[in-house]
């Protein structure tokens, strides 16, 4: 394991992120729209149903959403690297596939976390308020773990897909369901059994729950459960991602 190798791969992801200003701004549009439209649109009903302030409930879900999408896209970037030819350069180098996978994944996860932090800051202007300053650093740690998990998932997907053609399928049948069936937009109590079971198997549910616990002070599964499931999710996906990436061909 070479720290320098992992560092330079990490740095590449960071540089590419900060250089594409359009991408940063563009990918803020969707979470902001969700926050404003859903937050203010469903706010009154949510309140009437006795669930409290909807912005307070929704914000962690929207932060998680932007982390989910940014992380998956960072992982998927491998496909672009293959099409632009750069993947060959890394694959013939005398470095292990694990180092390449780790460097990229840490870079992608850092970028996704930054994106989550930006959405968090924006939400403060929309009316979100954190319940505890002490819990705030833990929220950032959970964001990073979520980012790590989904970047690894993106890497795994990119290692299997040969080009972007299969991506629409992945988007509609994997990523969208992960988002919509995670409790990002609605509470998980009193749901039909099927949806509840799916939500319970969805790693994003635990990430969002952990964010609610640390940002808004409410939790469905509880922080301990959240931490355990997130940790297992990260471990499993890093393993699967590394395995699939080790089989990749330029």
């Amino acid at each position: 394991m070479s720290i320098n190798v992992i560092y330079i791969l990490w740095l590449r992801q960071i540089k590419r992120y900060f250089r594409s200003k359009a991408r940063i701004v563009g990918s803020l549009g969707q979470p902001l729209l969700f926050l404003l439209a859903l937050g203010f649109g469903f706010g009154p009903i949510f309140q009437k149903a006795g669930q409290g302030n909807y912005i307070q409930f929704l914000t962690p879900g929207i932060i998680a959403m932007s982390i989910l999408f940014t992380a998956i896209f960072s992982g998927i970037e491998i496909i672009w690297d293959r099409q632009f030819g750069f993947l060959k350069e890394t694959l013939v180098a005398p470095v292990s596939r694990l180092e390449i996978m780790l460097g990229r994944t840490l870079g992608g996860a850092t970028v996704a976390t930054l994106q989550g932090v930006i959405v968090f800051v924006l939400s403060l202007f929309v009316g979100f308020h954190i319940y505890s300053l002490i819990a705030l650093p833990f929220a950032f740690i959970f964001m990073f773990f979520m980012a790590l998990l989904f970047t690894a998932l993106g890497t795994a997907i990119a290692s299997v897909l040969k080009d972007m053609q299969g991506f629409q399928l992945i988007m509609n049948f994997l990523i969208m369901p992960i988002f919509f069936l995670s409790g990002a937009l609605f509470p998980l109590d009193g749901l039909p059994k099927v949806i509840e079971v799916i939500a319970r198997c969805n790693p994003l549910s635990y990430g969002i729950d952990a964010l609610r616990a640390t940002l808004s002070g409410v939790a469905h599964f509880g922080l301990l459960n959240d931490s355990i499931f997130l940790f297992i999710g990260v471990a499993v996906l890093l393993f699967v991602g590394s395995f699939l990436f080790s089989k990749i061909e330029a």
Binding site: R12, K15, R16, R19, F84, G85, F86, K88, E89
Partner: peptide, 11 residues
């Protein structure tokens, strides 16, 4: 040195 392009354009 590959025949096809393999540099990173964004760097």
């Amino acid at each position: 040195v590959f025949q096809d392009p393999s540099v990173d354009e964004e760097l």
